[in-house]
Nucleic acid binder design. Structure first.
Lengths: 140, 140
DNA sequence: ATCATACTTGACTATCTTGATCATGTTTGT
DNA sequence: ACAAACATGATCAAGATAGTCAAGTATGAT
């Protein structure tokens, strides 16, 4: 599973906006990039995509910024990955041999397995873990 | 899961050599590329890697070619992927925030899930399925 | 010996994706 | 009017991927 920086940043931004969804004023890009070490102009691009997806709203002008516009429990990591749209490599030519086909099916199985994991993790799950101490206790 | 053409070709070559492991004479590159539509010089590169891994032997000169030198039941798709060495993207900087860390853990979970699938599929499994009719019957 | 076949090796190229930047414009609060 | 902050589109550099090429070496057949 190769997760691009773009997707990683997108998730961080969504999580950060979730954390501050009770704030009165919107969150400026600058505040997010400062906290998470994300290159500013890059995050601009990413937020544009997130806005297109309908998950954040922007407020222009002085004291503007971004605000979450969905429920974090309704959004999974897979949703974000798909919205950011990691250029999926063009599908290979129609399998010519049976071995070819069998093999391609295995690649698909493997991909499905990781998608399953990603589809099971909602933003709210991560926020929960973040609040209740370090999650690494579950893995180490 | 993005499987590179290189890995796909490598697996096809290994499978093809497995199918013909009872042949007296080694299998020429040309025979593999013809059957599976693989660009010739590209497969040369790939076979070099497979030889380095110790999974195939080459026979030079006229009537030369390649021969399998491992038991297909001892080799998984993951083995091949790792041998071909899909340039893993350099690890991200040490997670700076807790959210960053939680997120990275999820990417790792997803990757592990697909690796698990790939580590469970041996070359012999695919050969088996190939012999016993179309495998897609298990999925459709 | 010579020739054709087939592997060996290393360098090389084109194209695409990713990560990132920049310039310019627009909106809004004070 | 001015500054803060988002909007948009173009552009760029590095790296990976897919694939090619040329020159060399080993071997069997004639």
């Amino acid at each position: 599973m190769v997760i691009s920086a773009r997707v990683h940043y997108a998730c961080l931004a969504m999580l950060e906006l979730s954390l501050r969804s009770d704030d009165v004023s919107p969150v400026a890009i600058r505040e997010i990039t400062d906290r998470h070490n994300i290159p500013g102009p890059f995050l601009v691009q990413i937020l544009r995509t997130l806005r297109t997806a309908g998950w954040v709203q922007s407020v222009r002008g002085s004291h503007g910024g971004y605000r979450l516009s969905v429920d974090p429990s309704q959004l999974t990591l897979l949703d974000i990955i798909e919205a950011i749209g990691c250029q999926e490599t063009a599908a290979r030519a129609t399998p010519s041999t049976q071995l070819d086909e069998l093999l391609s099916e295995q690649w698909e199985e493997a991909a499905a397995a990781s998608r399953r994991v990603l589809a099971e993790t909602r933003l709210s799950d991560l926020l929960e873990r973040c609040r209740h101490g370090d999650a690494s206790m579950f893995y180490i």
